[in-house]
Amino acid sequence: MLAPALVLFGLFVLYPLVGAVRISLTDSTGIGEARWVGLGNYAELARDPVFWRAAGHTVLLAAVSVPVSLALGLALALLLRDKLPGRGLFRALFLAPYVLSGVVVAMAGRWIFDENIGIVHRLALALHLPAWSWQSSPWPAAASIVLVLLWARTGLAVVLYLSALQGVPADVMEAAELDGASPWQRLRYVVWPLLRPTTFFLTVLLVIETFQVFDLVWVMTGGGPAGGTELLVTYAYGQGFNARREGYGSAIGVVVFVVVLAATALWWRAQRASEDEA
């Protein structure tokens, strides 16, 4: 029963991963024969300030977007938990950006934050607010990436939290209410512990996806301005395909894989320890 899945996993995941590791140990340019350099690309990474800046941007994006996505998703799920009119429509609207192509979402974000004709720019002018340089200044450009990413990711958290909330036993909630627990106490001591598996799954999934963000940044800013939105994946792509340094770009990709794997393992251990204590 597992054989078809294992074959596909080996063909489309393990084999490319082994190939990337092999290429990262060479000076491959994609043209001609590659020369073996061993750990030379990784040694260069350690001295590359652009790599460390891209790594800092990636970690900061994950540190900001993941907790906010979880918080917004849970808050919206609590609002949509009751049988409100049009609840199915709201679910579809929240999930739509997640299931749409990343390029489509990025093009929409680029149009929304356009400095000349964008909705945000026109709204700022209408309200007599200062207009930000969303596309030509590093920090506003980074803020636009975060906002569009939250728009694209929160819908998944809403849907999964809604499904988890439907599994909360009604009799447990009624017992807590009869015991005098306030809405916040019921959320903190009854609902939240039951949502930990969903939160763990979402955290791991969103962290992995954040470290793999490419199309959103590439379409909206291209990693600019002045490298202000450069992430590890966009830097790897630029080095591998624009600069024709496939070996160096593959080394960056291997580093991203190792970091995500280590972060997932640490978070899993912390989650297991928390469950054991409970």
Rank of each mutant, 00 (worst) to 15 (best):
V68Q: 10
V68A: 11
L70E: 08
A71C: 07
L72G: 11
L72Q: 06
G73D: 09
G73C: 12
G73F: 06
L74H: 14
L74C: 11
L74Q: 10
L76W: 11
L76C: 10
L76E: 05
L79T: 11
R81G: 11
P85K: 09
P85D: 05
R87H: 08
G88Q: 11
G88F: 07
G88L: 12
L89V: 14
R91N: 12
A92K: 02
L93M: 10
L93H: 03
L93T: 04
L95H: 05
P97W: 06
P97Y: 06
P97R: 10
Y98I: 05
V99W: 14
V99D: 13
V99M: 03
V99P: 03
V99L: 14
L100N: 08
S101P: 01
S101K: 05
G102V: 01
V104G: 13
V105T: 09
A106V: 00
A106Y: 00
M107S: 00
M107G: 03
A108G: 12
R110C: 00
R110T: 01
R110H: 08
I112V: 15
I112K: 01
F113Q: 11
D114K: 11
D114T: 00
I117H: 14
I117T: 14
I117Y: 15
G118P: 13
I119C: 00
I119H: 02
V120H: 09
H121C: 04
H121N: 13
R122C: 07
A124I: 02
A124W: 03
L125N: 11
L125A: 13
A126T: 08
L129P: 04
P130M: 00
W132D: 04
W132N: 00
W132Y: 12
S133K: 15
Q135Y: 14
Q135N: 13
S136M: 00
S136Y: 05
S137I: 08
P138R: 14
P138N: 05
P138G: 06
W139D: 03
W139I: 14
P140S: 12
A142N: 06
A142C: 01
A142D: 05
A142K: 11
A142G: 10
A143F: 10
S144T: 07
I145K: 00
I145E: 03
